[in-house]
């Protein structure tokens, strides 16, 4: 419970780590936003966008950031707020001021290339979903009747994983997930660059979100049919073996997805799979 009766400040001090474009130097800028009840970080950024002037009165460009649903289901507005990665829509100003009454500190995610200010390029996160084949490979979209029956227990087990909104919190907090920022070379076409990017991403850690998605589709009765392909992907370079069990993923996940359970299940599947493969070859 928060009380904002007497202690409500007149202004909120906001410190934003800004960066004009990729590869450029970042710098801090301080803003002062009039306090309103029920503010969240998004509304603070909206006020800054409407009147981009720093605390010391300088007119600057508005802060760029990413958001969409503002209900914590789309995963767009992830950023590092007061040192902790989270969705900025559900980061309430009153709560943040309890953590630190002096100011609110906003930084872009640390594991993804900054595009501008608080906007980052999270394409690697989606590439990981391609790598683990996170889909049900149905034959067609024709009318073939209902899907296989599933027990409510199985649905309850899968449902949490299916809520993953690819926000990237788990990746940003993971000490084993390292930032990769590639620069397009002059002699490289867009396609060549995209291919190089994909190859580099594939070699590095897929991340807890993708491991959980692989488990989700391996639990699905139809998805199960190519479970081996997903386990194969999870034991390829950058697979589940990179996990260092710091378990930050599960503690920062805004949807409380049991990511460490997925990782352990992936570990078990990998164990069985690799032993089987070794004896079968």
């Amino acid at each position: 419970m928060i009380s904002r009766s007497k202690t409500s400040p007149e202004h909120v001090e906001v410190r934003v780590l800004r960066q004009a474009a990729p590869q450029q130097r970042s710098y801090w800028e301080r803003f002062r936003v009039a306090y309103e009840p029920d503010m969240n970080v998004i509304s603070v950024l909206q006020r800054i966008a409407a009147r981009p002037r720093t605390a010391d009165g300088q007119d600057v460009t508005p802060v760029a950031w990413d958001c969409n649903c503002l209900e914590e289901v789309c995963g767009a507005c992830t950023m590092v707020v007061n040192g902790r990665v989270r969705q900025s829509c559900s980061a309430l100003v009153d709560r943040l001021l309890e953590e630190n009454p002096a100011e609110i500190e906003l930084r872009p995610m640390t594991k993804f290339p900054v595009l501008r200010d608080l906007m980052v390029d999270r394409s690697r996160l989606f590439r990981a979903l391609e790598k683990v084949k996170a889909w049900v490979p149905v034959d067609s979209y024709h009318d073939m009747g209902a899907g296989p029956r599933q027990s409510p227990e199985a649905q309850q087990e899968s449902y949490p994983y299916s809520q993953c909104m690819s926000c990237g919190c788990c990746l940003d907090a993971c000490p084993q997930y390292r930032k990769i920022e590639l620069i397009q070379r002059d002699d490289e076409t867009d396609e060549q660059f995209a291919a190089r990017q994909a190859a580099t991403y594939d070699r590095n850690f897929v991340g807890p979100h993708a491991i959980a998605q692989a488990i989700l589709f391996n639990q699905n009765p139809t998805g199960q049919m190519n479970a081996d392909e997903r386990v194969e992907a999870l034991t390829a370079p950058g697979g589940v073996q990179v996990c260092g069990n710091a378990q930050n993923c599960v503690s920062v996940c805004p949807k409380e997805i049991p990511l460490t359970t997925a990782i352990a299940q992936a570990g078990r599947a990998a164990t069985v799979h690799s032993i089987k493969r070794w004896f079968d070859r």
């Binding site: 979209y141 009318d143 073939m144 009747g145 029956r149 027990s151 409510p152 649905q155 699905n220």
Partner: peptide
């Protein structure tokens, strides 16, 4: 038919005890 298709695509619809869509 659309719900059947979405079911086949792996949507985690809630289930009845017997395993049909709730």
């Amino acid at each position: 038919k659309i719900i059947d298709l979405m079911d086949r695509l792996g949507v985690t619809f809630n289930r009845t005890p017997e395993g049909f869509l709730d």
